[in-house]
């Protein structure tokens, strides 16, 4: 293990590449744990400094850092809280790495757990509108279909400019779920035939509003005026200490790709498009998380519990 050659960004990207199912916050935590294992800091202040500097480089080098920073902040919090627990340094370090791995494992399991909570929301003969591609939504639908044998139909938005809706549709069709892809502009047309809406989230803000692929906000508005339940399916490690008032408060740069997109937009003008937006909490019916089904205002409670215990 060569200490000099370790680069947090490449590690992070490698993790994402190796495992299709890995989300950004978990990849961030996993790469931070790997960093700790290779660097072997010798004092606790060195450790904290190291973690801090790595988080900073990671945040600044990755363009869309919202859900990533959620993972990093969680890990930082975890480190700060645990360094004081042990009297001798060796066991502390060992514990930190072990617990870090445990943490990653638990985070991975959370997707399974929240699918359990989410299944009662899906009923026979439902028509569900899904926006773009989300691993948690996919997992939930898959579980409902395969384990509970619920029969339902899904409409997936195409979700330009990333076009991830096609990816989602393909996965669902492979799982034997009847699926239709609609263009983003057709949401208003189909919405009165839809029973509920499921979306994932990049990050969940303190107010309970969500940051998600562009187009979620307008679907939320349409859902509210048509009195359709709008559910957000998300892991609790995506809760971020962020409170945007309006979409332009989001700390993200334009024209960067969300994750690796399969389809490059051919039109040059499209490159300037914002890729994520913010849906305020008043449009959200409930959040289905691994902590249970929460109302939007319960998010801040969970966040305060994590940060001020």
């Amino acid at each position: 293990m060569s200490n000099e050659t370790f680069d947090i960004k490449t590690t992070y990207l490698r993790f994402l590449e190796e495992d299709e199912d890995l989300t950004m916050p978990i990849a961030a935590i996993e790469s931070l744990v790997t960093m700790l294992r290779t660097k072997q800091p010798s004092t606790s202040s060195e450790l904290i400094k190291l973690v801090k500097s790595n988080i900073d480089t990671l945040k600044s080098s990755i363009s869309n850092a919202i859900s990533l920073s959620a993972g990093c902040d969680l890990f930082m919090r975890f480190v700060l809280r645990n360094t004081n627990l042990y009297s001798d340094w060796e066991s502390c370090k060992k514990n930190l790495v072990e617990n870090g791995e445990l943490f990653v494992q638990r985070a991975k399991d959370s997707r399974n757990k929240l699918a359990e909570f989410g299944i009662p929301f899906i009923k026979d003969d439902d028509t569900i509108l899904v926006h773009s591609f989300s691993r948690v939504v996919y997992q939930l639908l898959l579980k409902a279909r395969k384990e509970k044998l619920i029969r339902f139909r899904v409409k997936v938005t195409e979700s330009r400019p990333s076009g991830k809706g096609y990816h989602m549709a393909k996965l669902l069709r492979d799982a034997d779920i009847p699926v239709e892809v609609i263009v983003d502009n057709a949401v208003g047309y189909v919405i009165h035939n839809v029973d509920k809406i499921l979306v994932g989230a990049e990050g969940v803000a303190e107010s309970g509003g969500i940051i998600n692929h562009i187009g979620s906000y307008q679907i939320g508005c349409l859902a509210k005026t048509n009195n359709k339940p709008f559910y957000v399916v998300t892991e609790s490690h995506k809760f971020v200490r962020l409170f945007p008032l309006a979409p332009n408060d989001l700390p993200t740069e334009m024209s960067q790709l969300l994750e690796q997109s399969n389809e490059q937009p051919e039109d040059q003008d499209l490159l300037k498009t914002q890729l994520i937006d913010f849906t305020p909490h008043e449009y959200i019916t409930a959040l289905i998380t691994d902590l249970g089904v929460l109302t939007p205002s319960a998010v801040s409670e969970e966040l305060i519990k994590v940060w001020y215990d």
Binding site: S207, R241, F243, S297, S300, I304
Partner: peptide, 9 residues
């Protein structure tokens, strides 16, 4: 000082 919240919290 504990962060920003919606009034419901």
């Amino acid at each position: 000082e504990l962060g920003a919240l919606p009034p419901s919290s």
